Amino acid sequence: MEAIGAPGAGLLVALENLFPPLPSEVILPLAGFTASQGNFSLAGAIFWTTLGSVVGAIALYWIGVALGRRRLRVIVDKMPLVDLEDLDRTEAWFERHGKATVFFGRMVPIFRSLISIPAGIERMSFPLFVVLSAAGSLIWNTIFVVAGYFLGENWHIAEQYAGVFSRIVVIAVLAFLIWWVVRRVRRNRRGRAAEH
């Protein structure tokens, strides 16, 4: 972190959006700790990491735009257990709650990166997307950079708490997916039994 400086930390955070195995929960507190050692300023660490978050989110937004609704519908239509009606409901939900989803999604592990793609697919206003992504990222990054700054050499404690939060999110998502798949398989079986 000393070698790459605050702009390098921002670059790592941008890459974390595209390659989630690079965890921001490690990068951000470490940037805060390095700032506390006087290698760069706290404000610089927050600015560069937030800029990196926004740049990464923008890249994924344009991937969503390139994918587009038509291609997405073709992909979804070929997927087992997923109906186009599911996609229609998801799109309607995103239309109603898209702004809050992008803003709060920037503060939730896993979804931090992924939320940019549906925003691009749905062609959310680009300036609005950038503002919401920047605001959500600023809050998330500030919490972890400041934690690393004040925890000093114990900066890794912030990463441990973030790791617990990440695991809770992963377990909740897996539980939901299992419930959804079981429900969908049962529905399809009942549909086939009714046809016979």
Rank of each mutant, 00 (worst) to 15 (best):
G5E: 09
P7I: 05
P7A: 09
L11H: 02
L12P: 07
L12M: 13
L12A: 07
A14R: 09
L15A: 15
E16G: 07
N17H: 14
F19D: 12
L22G: 11
P23T: 05
E25I: 02
I27V: 11
L28F: 10
P29T: 15
P29I: 13
A31S: 14
F33K: 06
T34C: 07
T34Q: 10
A35N: 05
A35L: 01
S36Q: 06
G38T: 08
G38S: 10
L42N: 01
G44Q: 14
A45Y: 05
A45E: 12
A45R: 02
A45T: 11
I46C: 07
F47R: 09
T49K: 02
T50Q: 08
T50W: 03
V54T: 06
V54N: 00
V55R: 02
G56P: 01
A57Q: 00
I58S: 09
W62C: 05
G64S: 06
V65A: 10
R73I: 10
V74Y: 15
V76F: 11
D77K: 13
M79E: 04
M79I: 10
M79K: 09
P80K: 01
L81Q: 07
D88K: 15
F94Q: 00
F94V: 04
R96W: 00
R96Q: 10
G98T: 02
A100F: 14
V102G: 09
V102W: 03
F103A: 01
G105L: 02
V108S: 11
R112E: 03
I115P: 00
S116L: 02
I117W: 01
P118Y: 04
A119Y: 02
I121G: 02
F126G: 06
P127C: 03
P127I: 03
L128F: 03
L128C: 06
F129H: 10
V130M: 08
V130D: 05
S133E: 00
S133Y: 02
G136K: 00
L138M: 12
I139Q: 03
I139F: 14
I139N: 05
W140C: 02
T142P: 08
V146N: 03
V146H: 03
A147R: 00
A147M: 03
G148T: 10
F150Y: 15
L151G: 02
G152P: 10
N154T: 14
Q160V: 15
Y161Q: 09
A162Q: 03
G163D: 00
F165D: 04
F165N: 07
I171G: 12
A172C: 10
A172Y: 05
V173R: 12
A175V: 05
L177G: 11
V182Y: 14
V185Y: 08
R187S: 12
N188G: 11
A193F: 07
